[in-house]
């Protein structure tokens, strides 16, 4: 393409052709999703095993590894994706901000749980189990709708169903025993992140 004058018809052709080129669907690979999925599953298994062996609830603090490790890795991986694609659309910004809010909210949940425990002595940490199974599925469903990706919507709905069950158990006073809850938690993250992550990777390679 050069710096030359156009006829009116050519102008219209340039505009429509450039719009068509930018409308190409860019499907990010599912590596960020896979990283979060495997990280959650790894920590869930680790906490489950350590709880079973030692009976010390302090092992639950290992969950704080998730935002630390995941946050740093996500930043590095997003930069790589942006460098490879070279363009940022409205959808990219919307999904990025959606995940930033969903990802930072557990910090606030943890702060509220801590304050309530200090003030009332009541253990509210069950909320930390319900949180990722409500907020994360909603963020994932929204992303699935935005980028028209069914695997994200289905994965999000599966996670949400498990989240609703978790909330009902907490409200009904049913104890979330690690023996049945940890496998359910792992299942939710496999459905929400690992399965869609692999599907996205396969589609991205095909594209």
């Amino acid at each position: 393409m050069e710096d030359r004058k156009l006829t009116e018809k050519e102008s219209l052709e340039v505009i429509t052709s450039m719009i068509a080129r930018t409308k190409e669907r860019y499907l990010d690979d599912g590596n960020i999703l896979l990283m979060w999925g495997y990280l959650a599953v790894f920590i869930a298994i680790l906490v489950w095993v350590l709880l079973a062996i030692t009976r010390q609830s302090a092992w639950n603090f290992l969950w704080f590894m998730m935002p630390l490790v995941g946050g740093v890795a996500t930043r590095a991986m997003s930069r790589k994706q942006l460098r490879e694609r070279g363009v940022r659309t409205f959808t990219d910004r919307a999904t990025s901000e959606l995940w930033a809010i969903a990802g930072s909210s557990p910090i606030w949940v943890a702060v509220v749980c801590l304050i309530l425990q200090c003030l009332t002595g009541n253990d509210c940490w069950g909320a930390m189990l319900a949180y990722p199974l409500i907020v994360v599925p909603f963020a994932e469903i929204a992303q699935g709708i935005l980028i028209k990706e069914d695997s994200l919507i289905m994965g999000g709905l599966t996670g949400l169903l498990i989240g609703i069950l978790t909330i009902c158990c907490i409200a009904g006073g049913i104890v979330l025993h690690a023996n049945w809850f940890q496998p359910l938690f792992i299942l939710a993250f496999v459905a929400m992140m690992i399965v869609p992550g692999h599907i996205l990777n396969r589609k991205a390679k095909r594209e």
Partner: peptide
């Protein structure tokens, strides 16, 4: 009204950056 400048503008109208 120049081929390349119009192309650049058309692209940037459709993306954030």
């Amino acid at each position: 009204h120049s081929q390349l400048r119009l192309a650049i503008m058309s692209i940037l109208m459709n993306v954030e950056e």
